[in-house]
Simulated assay, not measured.
Amino acid sequence: MKALFEQSNIGKMQVKNRFIRSATWENMTTEDGHMTDKLYDIYEELAQGGVGLIITGYANIVIEEQPNPGMMGIYDDSFIDEYQKLTELVHTYDSKIVMQLAYGGTKTTHNVGERIIYAPSEVAEKGTNTLGKSMTKAEIDYIIHAFALSAKRAQQAGFDGVEIHGAHTYLINQFLSPYYNRRTDQYGGSLENRMRFLVEVFLQMRKLVGDDFSIMVKLTASEFFEGGLTFAETRVICKTLENIGVDAIEISGNIHGKASTMIGQYFDGYQLQEEGYFVEYGKAISDDVDIPIITVGGLANIETIETILGTTNIAYFAIARPLLSEPHLIKRWQAGDRRPGICEHCSKCRTRRGNFCVVHNKR
């Protein structure tokens, strides 16, 4: 029987428990994405708090593309030394750390009009209404190579792996989506073609980092709107990722700010849950594949998490907001205090001074 506080593996990476800090944009770097003392302190406290694996806030892979201010960078070699300091700090507490790599694309309102923003097709992002440039084959190759180089830099900096952000309407998600991807070349049309960009990103990464470095992928379960990526398609994508050697898949969604109105509804035959929004989707995929599946979204109660662990093949539980309000939550649970996290799910974490809990953990 699986236990929450036991060692397990994501690829060759050994993780001391089944709790993951999901990628969270902190908005606390320098203007060009470099580390600050405040950010080092946040990651050290997370590691002290007992979480098995930390996934960093998303890092931009090319200098000209920054979907949000204050986000980490990994677009050139100048970051390697400062990230070595970060990874050594986290490893001191027997936690592992993975860097999330992303090209945000049109899921942005930051500096729009001042830079070229790539997209698979000229279709405005639903939430931001930002329009991107339909990519040429040369531009596709450029971004694929940038993803691979960024993974290599992360490896050189001592990270235990990387996570490819293929969810939340960022560029990779848009290539997967029939709504956003209207291409008629080898990167558009059929699901096999729409997957090609993500598959090539992974394969080029694997060539540069070798087989022992963990590569995870974050996917949107469904786009939850007519004409978007369906859960049936996501299941096919997950089988493909397993077959080419991806080490773990995190199943998420793009319902930020909309969860309260969507909970309990059925999409593609599965219901969004009040705690563990995407558990039903993660459960189905965990039955399809033999690699670890991570669920994320609204998790704050250890009793619920244990039930999911005991009744599904889901292997890991990713938490974000509860760790903003209570960085030592996992250590508290492990010590026997099983009260739910104190997070009030008010979603007021995002402030102009960075992302932190304004109720319980003021900075």
Results as ranks from 00 to 15, higher is better:
His256Tyr: 08
Trp25Ile: 02
Pro69Ala: 04
Ser78Pro: 07
Ile302Ala: 12
Arg153Trp: 03
Ile97Tyr: 07
Glu45Ser: 12
Val201Glu: 00
Leu208Ile: 10
Gln66Leu: 00
Gly227Asn: 15
Tyr281Thr: 04
Gly105Tyr: 00
Val98His: 00
Gln156Ala: 07
Gly188Pro: 13
Leu4Glu: 14
Arg338Gln: 14
Arg353Pro: 09
Gly166Arg: 04
Ile61Met: 02
Ile144Ser: 10
Ile215Tyr: 06
Arg115Gly: 03
Glu200Tyr: 15
Gly73Asp: 01
Asp268Leu: 04
Ile255Trp: 14
Val359Phe: 09
Leu171Met: 04
Pro340Val: 05
Ile308Asn: 04
Asp290Cys: 10
Pro340Thr: 01
Asn17Pro: 15
Ala167Cys: 07
Asn193Ile: 05
Ile144Met: 14
Ile74Pro: 13
Lys38Pro: 03
Phe356Thr: 14
Glu223Leu: 09
Lys96Phe: 02
Glu44Thr: 09
Pro120Lys: 01
Gly354Gln: 11
Gly253Ile: 13
Gly70Val: 12
Asn17Arg: 14
Thr29Lys: 08
Asp76Ile: 08
Pro340Cys: 03
Tyr270Leu: 13
Glu275Asp: 15
Thr29Val: 04
Thr128Arg: 04
Leu324Pro: 01
Gly104Thr: 00
Glu280Ser: 11
Phe147Glu: 02
Glu250Cys: 01
Tyr187Phe: 15
Gln156Cys: 08
Thr169Met: 03
Met1Phe: 08
Asn68Asp: 00
Ser190Ala: 07
Ile244Asp: 13
Ala151Asn: 07
Thr311Ser: 11
Val217Lys: 03
Asn243Phe: 02
Phe278Cys: 08
Lys96Gly: 05
Ala300Arg: 08
Ser22Gly: 09
Gly341His: 04
Arg321His: 03
His328Lys: 06
Gln84Trp: 01
Trp333His: 10
Asp160Ser: 06
Met99His: 08
Ile10Tyr: 15
His34Met: 01
Thr24Asn: 09
Asn17Gln: 12
Ile144Trp: 09
Lys96Met: 03
Leu299Thr: 12
Gln100Asn: 02
Gln156Glu: 06
Glu45Met: 14
Lys348Tyr: 06
Ser222His: 05
Ala23Leu: 07
Gln334Pro: 03
Cys238Ala: 13
Ile20Ala: 00
Lys362Tyr: 11
Ile302Tyr: 01
Glu139Thr: 04
Tyr170Gly: 00
Gln265Arg: 09
Ile308Lys: 03
His91Cys: 07
Ala151Lys: 10
Ser286Tyr: 06
Val90Leu: 11
Leu4Thr: 13
His360Asp: 05
Gln204Arg: 13
Thr311Lys: 12
Ser286Thr: 01
Phe225Gln: 04
Lys96His: 08
Phe175Ser: 05
Ala151Ser: 11
Met195Trp: 12
Gly158Met: 10
Gly113Asn: 08
Glu226Gln: 13
Ser190His: 04
